[in-house]
Simulated assay, not measured.
Amino acid sequence: MNPPLIFVVAPALQLPDATTSLEVLTQAQAAGPSTGFALRIFNRGANHPDLGLLPVDGRLTGEQRRSSDGTQLLCDALVVRIEPRHHWLGAYQGDPEDPTCLRCLDRVALSELSNEACWFYPTHDGTFLSWERGLSLSLKPGSIVNCPEELSSAPYDRSLISVLWSLLGDDASLTCVGLTYGGQRLIWPMQTLRLDPMATWGRFRVDSQAEQSLVVEDCLTVFPIPPLAT
């Protein structure tokens, strides 16, 4: 089995192109994506007419995926804002004789990689709620999630990388939501994470038979309730 692949998403000039170390790659990744957002999508949007009454933390169903009134959490995602027009991907691998010595296998602009569609928003008709909250973050170097043995034992192959795009909630355009290698998701662990104080709730309707299949009905930014004065 080969040493695991290590991936870094950052501007091109930050990516080492020769032998390097994990410390250097960690510094390079720190120069990469620094913002993102948490996204949740719920069903039964028509049953919650006043968006101003919804919780800023997005916990409409509490700690469960379904509440007693039938409201169900359909999507719970944390999306890092990767910018394929600006970011590159570096692939690195440890030397079998010295795992601390990392070799650069590839450096490539994300805009040059294959694209693939995936779906975050509901594909069935109905009225839904979306909750979105901005994030400030920093990442550690990434790896392949649950890498199968046949993938880990094969040589690195750039053609196995795909950039994932999706519609999110009530968005009208596609958003980059991550990357895969050989069909397996790449993940970059969080180094730091900070939530914005406010969040945005939206209500949207999906009707596959309508001329306009996605209609945003309402949108509202909500803020934490200040503590009562004593």
Rank of each mutant, 00 (worst) to 15 (best):
P3C: 04
V108P: 01
A38V: 07
G70C: 04
A172G: 10
R205L: 11
L193F: 09
L25Q: 11
V9W: 01
S136N: 13
G134E: 02
L74I: 05
R133E: 05
L78G: 11
V24L: 10
G126K: 00
S162R: 14
L220I: 07
S111H: 02
C118K: 11
D98R: 13
D17C: 02
Y121S: 15
M198H: 09
Y92K: 15
Y156L: 03
R107W: 06
T35P: 01
R203N: 09
G182Y: 07
W188N: 02
L137F: 10
L193W: 05
L174Q: 13
L5F: 11
T35N: 11
I187Q: 13
L139T: 02
W188V: 08
H87I: 08
A18C: 11
P11W: 02
A28E: 01
G90S: 13
A210G: 12
C75W: 01
G126F: 06
P4R: 07
F120W: 10
H48S: 08
Q64V: 01
P224V: 05
L220H: 08
P226W: 08
L167P: 02
R40M: 09
E116P: 00
Q72V: 09
P49Y: 02
V9A: 05
V206K: 15
R158T: 12
Q212K: 08
G169D: 02
L15P: 05
P96K: 15
T61F: 00
G169I: 06
P227N: 05
E211F: 09
A117T: 03
A46M: 03
S213W: 14
A77F: 01
D171Q: 11
T192N: 01
L78F: 15
D57W: 00
A46N: 07
D76P: 06
L73S: 05
T35L: 14
C147P: 03
Q64P: 00
V177N: 07
E63I: 05
D171K: 13
R40V: 10
C75R: 13
L139Q: 03
A46K: 08
P122D: 02
S152D: 09
S138V: 05
T26N: 10
G36M: 04
R194E: 12
I6G: 07
G90Y: 05
L53A: 14
Q64N: 10
T175A: 14
E112R: 13
L53M: 06
P227T: 09
L220Y: 08
I82V: 15
C104N: 14
V80D: 02
R66T: 14
Q14D: 11
V145R: 10
W201I: 06
L193H: 08
P148I: 02
G45N: 07
P155D: 01
P33F: 06
A46W: 00
A18F: 00
N43P: 00
L89I: 15
